[in-house]
Simulated assay, not measured.
Amino acid sequence: MQLFKYIDRINLMDRLIRQGHTGTQTEFARRLGLSVSRLARIVEYLKDMGAPLEYDRTRNTYYYEGEYSIQIKVDIQQLTHQ
């Protein structure tokens, strides 16, 4: 299902950013299975939503300026009728 693929991708993106292992924009896009232009749109969207996301040209990695994390969780439960 596409929804789970997107959730996994955002969670991977967040983990790579927090670890400082995104690489260049091209490398980051490749790791996420995205085009560079699609990654750029997602980065801008996250910034618009308040994510303190920056890029360090010396280390060639995206990073969060300060403590920050994105977490998307899906909880699937079977409901019982009483």
Score class of each variant (00 low, 15 high):
Ser35Gln: 10
His81Thr: 00
Leu46Val: 00
Gln71Tyr: 07
Gln19Ile: 00
Leu34Ile: 05
Thr80Asn: 14
Leu39Tyr: 09
Ser37Gly: 10
Gly20Cys: 02
Lys5Pro: 09
Asp14His: 02
Thr22Arg: 07
Arg59Ile: 00
Thr22Leu: 06
Gln2His: 14
Leu79Trp: 10
Arg57Val: 00
Ser37Thr: 04
Arg9Lys: 14
Ser37Asp: 12
Gly66Ser: 12
Arg41Thr: 02
Ile76Leu: 15
Val74Cys: 13
Glu27Ala: 15
Met13His: 10
Glu65Gln: 14
Leu34Asp: 10
Leu16Gly: 07
Met49Arg: 13
Arg15Tyr: 01
Asp8Arg: 15
Ile72Asn: 14
Leu3Pro: 08
Asp8Phe: 09
Ile76Asp: 11
Tyr68Pro: 04
Asp48Ile: 00
Ala29Lys: 06
Leu46Asp: 06
Met1Leu: 07
Val43Tyr: 04
Thr26Cys: 07
Arg41Met: 04
Glu27Ile: 03
Asn11Arg: 11
Val36Ser: 13
Arg18Tyr: 03
Ile42Val: 10
Arg9Trp: 01
Tyr63Cys: 03
Pro52Gln: 03
Arg38Cys: 04
Lys73Glu: 11
Tyr68Arg: 05
Gln2Thr: 03
Gln2Glu: 13
Val43Cys: 06
Gly23His: 04
Gln78Asn: 12
Tyr62Cys: 03
Thr24Phe: 05
His81Phe: 11
Thr61Cys: 11
Leu3Gly: 10
Gly66Phe: 02
Lys73Cys: 06
Leu3Trp: 06
Ser69Tyr: 04
Ile72Gly: 13
Gly50Asp: 02
Ser37Met: 08
Leu46Lys: 09
Arg9Tyr: 02
Thr24Val: 04
Thr80Trp: 12
Gly50Gln: 02
Arg38Ser: 07
Ile76Gly: 09
Tyr63Pro: 04
Ile42Arg: 12
His21Trp: 02
Tyr55Pro: 05
Arg30Thr: 02
Tyr6Thr: 05
His81Cys: 05
Arg31Gln: 15
Leu16Ile: 01
Leu79Lys: 15
Thr80Leu: 14
Asp14Gln: 01
Gln78Thr: 00
Ala51Lys: 08
